[in-house]
Write a protein that binds this DNA or RNA. Structure first.
Lengths: 154, 154
DNA sequence: GGCTTCCTACTCGGATAATTCGTGTCCGAGTTCGACAGG
DNA sequence: CCTGTCGAACTCGGACACGAATTATCCGAGTAGGAAGCC
């Protein structure tokens, strides 16, 4: 998985605490990461409709929907793409003992197994929302954490 | 996920039908893939102890255990490595609002969410064995398929 | 005919290049806020 | 004092290099089987 996913999820959680739009450079400074590269991830989130950008002075990024309506899977798919990790190349239809195409109405067993695992993974990520993560942060280190972030963001 | 995983799983299923050791070149010809590269995957499987190699004339690879004792997860981890897809870089301990290390006894919420999804994915792959896959192949296209493979392998 | 020896061919195993994807960076287009001049 | 205009700074957005991991390949080390020669 792309490493930028971690940054993107953390940014979404931080934006939960923000009042107005937050510039990408500010988010980068907060997390101590490359601002130029973080911009790319935020653009992906914007293209997916999870956040929207405000240009000009005092602009930045802000969440478009309620944090409870944004799942972690949404963020992961926005950054890493929605394509499954496993791609079936239809090995059974190649080589000297190739199966005829008409006998391949169902995906091959290997493909089915991988799809089931992928579905389980996606279901697990779909069950957690950004609001849940913010709640967990509060439960872990108290409500002061996100309040301090809100204050620091200005 | 590495593309060679597909080859490795298919090879394990094929080895289920084989009587004796099968050379890597034969497996590559059966699947119409690069023999030189498939050798690398098979070596990974051998290092993991899933298959063992027999050298010399009439040598090749053969399964070490009963196919019912080899899970798909075993094969995937042997080829792709056992490291989880997501790596937490402890973002919360960086930047101007870095959390003190003593407050980070638990993994951060993002990390926990990703670990849960990874566990679900692994559990799904662990629930399917190579014997199950062979059974599925038989259920899909009849018992003739694996018998033809056995005959072709010699 | 049986046994020993040698040899050939075949096998794996690790070390070695080419390529694609992820990582990191940069500069230009567009927009908003503030200042300034005029009425 | 109020208003319209201008300018400048700040923001995002996409286009451009670099590096690493994956993909693909090759040749050498080792071994089992078979053939030939000897007893």
């Amino acid at each position: 998985m792309s490493g930028g996913v971690e940054w993107a999820v953390h940014c979404c959680v931080v934006l939960t605490a923000a009042r107005g739009p937050v510039p990408a450079a500010r988010l980068a400074e907060l997390h101590d990461v490359s601002g130029s590269y973080l911009a790319k991830q935020l653009q992906s989130l914007a293209r997916a409709g999870l956040i929207h950008s405000v240009q000009g002075h005092a602009g930045g990024y802000a969440l478009t929907r309620d944090p409870a309506d944004i799942t972690v899977l949404d963020v992961v798919e926005a950054v890493d793409g929605a394509a499954p990790a496993f791609t079936c190349t239809e090995i059974r239809q190649r080589g000297p003992l190739a199966a005829p195409a008409e006998a391949c109405t169902l995906p091959c067993p290997v493909h089915r197994t991988m799809m089931a695992a992928d579905d389980a993974w996606r279901a697990s990520l779909r069950a957690v929302t950004i609001a849940d993560l913010a709640q967990m942060v509060t439960a872990d280190s108290g409500p002061s954490t996100l309040l301090t972030v809100r204050q620091w963001l200005g």
